[in-house]
Structures are given as C-alpha cells and as structure tokens.
C-alpha cells in the first residue's frame, strides 16, 4: 500500500490541518516509510485473536450522574482567544 499526495491531502482535510504545498513531498515520503514499517504486522495471522480494548483487569467504574461543580463560567472563558460577554466567538457560520 502506498499513500499518494491526493490521499494525504484528503486525510489532512479530515484532520482539519491545512498542509503547506511545499511540504507535501516530504510528508508523503515520511508517511510512506512509516507505513512500510507499520505493515510488518501483516506477517502475523491474527484471525483468532480478540482485540485488546483495555489493559486494566477491572471494568470501568460508573458514578452517579450529578453535578459536582459549576458556576465556573469565568474560568472556562478565561483562556478563549476571542469572547464576548459569556460566549466564545467564532467566524460566521450561518449567512
């Protein structure tokens, strides 16, 4: 399997990262060498193996669905690059 430039641009679109045209060639080369390395896994037959979904020997705890904090709007908004009153401001989405 090899990744071409178009495929990489598509994946970058999915990941919401704009890729600099000048860097696409290097990126293609690097990603292909990484995938060549990753694909060693195809040597292994894993048909009868259960996928490992948790390394803990315990099931995830459940907790009561109740509010444990709150009234921290100021704190939450504090780091926002752009805000107005109690809102995060983003570029216009709907005309």
């Amino acid at each position: 399997m090899s990744l071409d430039k178009e495929k990489i641009k598509h994946v970058a679109k999915l990941a919401r990262i704009s890729v600099d045209e000048a860097k696409v060639d290097t990126l293609t080369k690097d990603l292909n060498s990484i995938f060549k390395f990753i694909e060693q896994l195809n040597e292994l037959n894993t048909d009868k193996v259960e996928p490992l979904t948790s390394i803990l020997n315990q099931s995830l705890r459940s907790r009561k669905d109740e509010i444990s904090d709150g009234k921290i709007r100021e704190k939450i908004l504090k780091n926002s690059p752009k805000k107005s009153e109690e809102f995060f401001i983003v570029p216009k989405v709907v005309e």
Partner: peptide
C-alpha cells in the same frame, strides 16, 4: 483493529 489484536498477543 489489527493493532489491537497484536497488542493482545
């Protein structure tokens, strides 16, 4: 999925 299986091994 393949990686999760190998992780099991």
């Amino acid at each position: 999925l393949k990686a999760q299986k190998v992780r099991q091994l």
